[in-house]
Amino acid sequence: MSDRILGAACVAVGAAMAWAAKDYAAPISYEPVGPRAFPLLLAGLMVAGGAWLVVKPTMNGHWMREAPLKALAFAVVAVFVYALLFEWLGFTLATTVMAVPVGMAFGGSLPKSLAGGVGLGLVLYLLFDKALDVVLPTGLLSFLFGGR
C-alpha cells in the first residue's frame, strides 16, 4: 500500500513541478536546451514512475504488500539533503552522496551502491554538461571539471 501512496505523491509533486516550470525562460538564449527542459523532463519521469507505482500489479496479485517504510522515509530525507548540498558539493558528489545510502537502504551492498552512485553522478554530469550543454555546479570537484 505504501508503494501506491508514494506513487500518488510522485504524481502530485511531478505535476506541481511541471506547472511551476512551464513559464521558465531565459532572458537571453545562452543554452540550446534552455532552463525549462530539465525540470519538465524530471516532472514527466516522476509522473510516469508514480503512475506506474499506483497501477502496477503487486506480488502474488495482492493489492496490499508490505513495503520498506523506513527505506522510503530515508530516501525522502536523502533527497532533501541532496538539495541542501547540491551547490556546495557539486552535482557529481551530491548525487553520489545521495545515491549510496539510498541504494543501501533498498538492499544494495556498499560496493555496488558506491559504484552505482559514482557512475550515476559521472554519467549524468557528462550527459548534461557535455552532450546537452547544461551547466551544472562542480562544487568541490571544480579542479577536475574546469571550475564552474
Rank of each mutant, 00 (worst) to 15 (best):
V134G: 03
A94Q: 00
F91V: 04
S113D: 11
L127W: 07
L42T: 14
L126Q: 13
P68D: 15
G50R: 02
L89R: 01
K130S: 12
A16R: 05
A78Y: 01
P57R: 12
S109W: 08
F38W: 12
L120G: 03
W19P: 02
R4E: 05
L120K: 00
G103E: 01
V79L: 09
D3Q: 09
A67L: 10
P111A: 09
I28P: 00
M46L: 14
G34E: 05
A94L: 04
P35G: 08
G103K: 01
D3K: 08
V11F: 02
L122C: 09
W63H: 10
L144E: 12
D133A: 09
V76I: 11
L42A: 11
M59V: 15
T96A: 11
P101M: 08
A99I: 06
E31W: 05
V97R: 03
A78T: 08
L6W: 01
G61N: 10
P137F: 08
P27R: 10
S2P: 04
T96V: 07
A37E: 02
G147K: 12
A131L: 13
L85N: 03
L124E: 06
Y30Q: 14
V11Y: 02
F80L: 15
L72G: 15
L132R: 02
G103A: 10
I5L: 06
N60F: 06
A105K: 07
G139V: 12
